[in-house]
Write a protein that binds this DNA or RNA. Structure first.
Lengths: 338, 338
DNA sequence: TGGGTTTGATAAACCGGTATAGCTCCCGAA
DNA sequence: TTCGGGAGCTATACCGGTTTATCAAACCCA
């Protein structure tokens, strides 16, 4: 028989549908003996719950969603999302909950997706990335009453659950390391200005500058693309008092920056030190290999999944979980200034 | 009222549930006037179908799945999948069908997922990538009666629908171009040997070699990782009669190969020409920028989605659609041999 | 021994749609 | 004048689970 239903199991076990449902969901209402028997039969018939039927009755679909709002062009090279995804899945697979992934162009599209998901009951909750300042998605999700967890930023005052790492401390560690090497002119090629993590990193650099006696520590924002990363680097290296070290907010921009340095004949790390605020094979493929901040992105995703499941189970308690601090992996692209 | 049902619409319109269902699905059974009225009310109440309910009744879930069986570590850097995904989604969004994405470690895990999806009715069909020789997934999907479309390889003799590009012609174009430049020692750093497209490319090189008067044209297989790509390159460049041109089956390996050449002091393109059989920002970030074979991966995905939807609608006709031929984008990494 | 509670189970309602049998008009043809 | 047939709609079964009301038997303590 193809695809047995609980009714089939019920007939075979000589009990009612209800009893089978109780047994399969481990809830009281049947004796241990009966439960045992039902479970064995279900196993034999290789029964699996029909997700739609269960969703209809129990009003939960065992599925969560994640929307990434970045142009596909820039997305692929960043291993960040692939690792994050794998992590999220590993966190979900234990409960055999599936993941819906959607790549959209912008935040408006993302909100549209949330509305659709909510009204069609397609997901039990969502995972948010790239939180911005005054992020409209937070209010929207509140309004939709869709459980959510924010990755990489506090969800605001009691608003949404979150999983975050300490960007500030990480950035301080980088700048302090460069200062200790002797650098006094450090530039920061940041990401999109309205991302919360961008702002935190910029603030960290600004705050540390006077304490470390830095002559200059500009933070320059970009759209996270290789093109802008390269353009800003070109500008920086053309200045009379050019920086002796540059910190990039992503590995892709760091690679682009390295390319510009080579093109302009600026030796790395002899005349310029480069640090990437994110690690991946990309940084290791380069010559010189790039010093980078390594975060356990996989674990990040895993924890986000866990927190989301907890939030779905009990939407009243808002969890804010801090993950392991990122560490600086020193490679060949950093050295004392020439 | 939160989340209206068709029953709510029915009461408000003063008709039966059935009439509403007919009207909303654009099928005969109601007059144009009534249909109009019902649609307007549904719009007003911002009704959306409950996906689970629809799935239960109509035994279709408006959702398709895609499983990628590669270690997450190697996945991220390859823009291929990100582009493919976006394309697939754009093909699906028109019908507002959602996509389930899963990254697993190996084919066994992938088949497991298909079994689960089939038994839980979670997807209407799946998209297959990285087809291997004698691929076990094909038979499995046949057995599960799960509609499927294969990307980048013919689905076998009438087995599964497919969307494919002509790898053979593309590889011939590359080799002919290199031969025309004057290269006679061309090496081919291929991917995983049991992938069908790897085999097709290897065969193309082997077939073209005598005709083009190549002295040597070895194809060396790898696991597609940067590490093996680098290792093989090191070996090739250490030979007494080292190749004057190398074709890499992926952009990541080509980048790794370029790194090895630089590390060994082999000038590119002066002493060695490099071609990547896949294009992305990665190849453009390099110095020199890599000559690469550009495929419209986005469109590839879009077409796969279309073919899959057709296959779901009518599983009896097997579609094998050939996509636009890839083109060779010449950049700075190819030149006549020194 | 009798009344109240617990245990183990059943039958039926329900979730929100789709599919279908059947009913009522109304129109046209025999 | 009657009958056939189609258009337009209703009532209802159904999909495969979950949940609740109900009930009989067993159990418990006085």
């Amino acid at each position: 028989m193809a695809r047995p239903t609980i009714a089939d199991i019920a007939t075979r076990a000589g009990v009612s549908k209800g009893a089978v449902s109780f047994a399969l969901n481990g809830r009281p209402g049947v004796s241990d003996a009966t439960r045992e028997r039902i479970l064995k039969i279900a196993e034999q018939m290789s029964w699996r719950p029909h997700s739609a039927a269960r969703a209809l009755g129990a009003s939960r679909v065992d599925s969560v969603g994640m929307v990434i709002a970045r142009p596909a062009r820039t997305l692929g090279v960043e291993p960040f999302f692939a690792h994050l995804l794998s992590g999220v899945q590993s966190g979900l697979s234990a409960e055999s909950i599936s993941l819906q992934l959607l790549i959209v162009e912008d935040t408006a599209g993302e909100i549209e997706v949330y509305r659709r998901w909510a009204s069609e009951h397609r997901v039990d909750g969502v995972i948010l990335v790239d939180l911005t300042v005054k992020d409209p998605r937070v209010d929207e999700l509140k309004a939709l009453e869709l459980p959510a967890v924010v990755i990489g930023g506090r969800g605001g005052k009691g608003a949404l659950a979150s999983v975050w790492a300490d960007d500030r401390d990480a950035m301080l560690a980088i700048v302090e390391y460069l200062a200790a090497l002797g650098h006094r002119r450090i530039a920061h090629v940041a990401g999109t200005p309205n991302f919360q993590h961008t702002q935190r990193r910029i603030r960290a650099v600004r705050d540390a500058a006077p304490r470390l006696g830095l002559l200059d520590a500009p933070s320059l924002t970009t759209d996270f693309s290789d093109a802008e990363g390269a353009a800003i680097t070109r500008k920086l290296l053309s200045q009379p008092d050019r920086p002796t070290a540059i910190v990039y907010d992503s590995d892709v921009m760091a690679v682009a920056g390295l390319g510009v340095a080579m093109e302009m004949g600026v030796a790395v790390p002899g005349e310029l030190s480069i640090v990437a605020f994110d690690d991946s094979i990309l940084t290791q493929l380069m010559h010189p290999a790039l010093t980078a901040l390594s975060r356990d992105t996989f674990d990040f995703g895993r924890q986000a999944a866990e927190v989301l499941l907890d939030t779905i189970a009990d939407p009243t308690t808002v969890i804010n979980r801090r993950t392991a601090d990122p560490v600086l992996t020193v490679r060949e692209s950093t050295a004392p200034p020439g």
